[in-house]
Design a protein around this nucleic acid. Structure first.
Lengths: 253, 253
DNA sequence: AGGATCAGTTCGACATTGTCGAACGTCGAC
DNA sequence: GTCGACGTTCGACAATGTCGAACTGATCCT
């Protein structure tokens, strides 16, 4: 059985050293840490630099993690995501009369990439670049239901209670997620903010992988009709916008 | 002049493919994309998997970006940072009577890693895991002033106005940052929230690199004395806590 | 100014390693 | 059951990566 590719192992070790150092490192420091001759380490780190995974300071010659690492983690660049989704999000707010949220998964939270105010002139504060708990918002639950790879399992979440309606047990949350999957849409009935409801659909990129959630929010009695389902004309617009944005995400840029 | 290390180049190409794909990829897809035979790609991607830079699904055998990538970017794991700082942050809140914030740089924002309520029982909302603008808070400006590698230059920031006191031009912000550097501490006099002031000091890891900011917040007239400087007993406690936490960050765990 | 030291970088011989065709084993579709 | 696709293993050998020696540049000391 063939072994590992030694030079790739060594390159990975260099990346770990630089990532964990807390400061830029000199070639000699890398060589000493790896117990390898300087020309050996030089060839490796120069290749990593040329690939963008390591940056080298021009005057000090010190090496540090490179900006090219940012693109390797998978998931969408939030600025690109916002640029592709914002026109449809703005139109959705106009068409539904609701606030609109575009959310991406970050650890145990839903990070708001874009936020459109409810167009009724009521007092609202901008939430772009804030984070909200996955388990208590429609867009958070949407990510939990449809993006299992990018979100933690329900049992690993701290199910903090925000209102009397928050899902505060794993069984309860799992039931919400199952319902969302069955419906193709997640909802919340005032689980994060009392009296404020939400509904959200997944945004999918190439291959069908869910990368973000698109949600609308309004007072619970405006968003939901009898039977506890979102009002039909609102749900239809949300689903339509979700499909259109997803189509934009499939296309390479 | 020797060329690049070919196998490292190929490994980097695999990481880029997986990072940009938006879905897990099969070995055959990687091989086709790189125009290399499957056993060649297999050796490379298996090594990347063994190094934690690539994950492989056990049932489908598909490959995707690995969790080990997270540690390569430099900067501190936020959970580790919080674990090391929280005792001192809690004591600082008790000693100063102020709210305390621990913030790390994330893009153009200061992300709140830890938040201790002001110990006077007043109504407060938890802000842990939320983000605030770098240019309008003491901890944000502290990061701008002392962590130039991890934060964007002032001219690249969108200097949005939150109150009448927010630094809304590059020249104004640069003057604030220069003053912070001269003092070893950054302040804000109600620039993010009207009437609420802040002061913050850098937290440094091994090599002196600033990785986070420790800040206190209170009403402006309580935090600042005559002359526009933070009250001496508050500043001293903040500086002391900052030094103690920094000493903890130097020690490997 | 000259010399010593340190460290990043280049050169090239050659041993080691990585490559890759052939083959194996597994899985799913028909 | 058969076939095709694909992940994985095997091993011969060509290509590549390694690394000692040397070069170059910067800094410090006398």
């Amino acid at each position: 059985m063939p072994g590992a590719i030694q030079s790739v192992e060594r390159a990975a070790a260099i990346l770990r050293l630089l990532g964990g150092a807390g400061r830029p490192l000199a070639l000699a420091e890398l060589a000493a840490a790896l117990d390898l001759p300087r020309p050996t380490v030089h060839g490796l780190v120069r290749t990593l630099r040329d690939e963008g995974l390591v940056d080298q300071d021009r005057t000090t010659a010190l090496y540090r993690p490179g900006s090219g690492l940012r693109r390797l983690g998978g998931g969408w660049d939030r600025h690109d995501l916002r640029a592709r989704a914002m026109n449809w999000a703005d139109a959705l707010a106009g068409g539904t009369g609701c606030a609109v949220y575009l959310a991406a998964p970050v650890g145990t939270m839903a990070s708001l990439v874009h936020h459109v105010f409810r167009p009724d002139g009521s007092p609202q504060s901008l939430r772009t670049n804030t984070e909200q708990p996955l388990h208590a918002t429609a867009w958070g639950k949407c990510l939990l239901a449809f993006a299992p790879v990018a979100t933690p399992p329900a049992r690993d979440l701290e199910l903090r209670r925000y209102t009397g309606r928050t899902a505060s047990t794993v069984a309860m949350l799992e039931a919400h997620l199952a319902a969302a999957r069955a419906r193709g849409m997640a909802t919340d009935v005032g689980e994060f903010e009392t009296g404020v409801g939400g509904a959200a659909v997944p945004l999918r990129s190439g291959g069908g992988l869910t990368v973000a959630a698109l949600g609308i929010a309004a007072p619970v009695e405006e968003l939901f009709g009898g039977g506890g389902e979102p009002r039909r004309h609102l749900a239809e617009q949300l689903l339509h916008a979700g499909r259109e944005i997803s189509a934009l995400l499939v296309t390479p840029r």
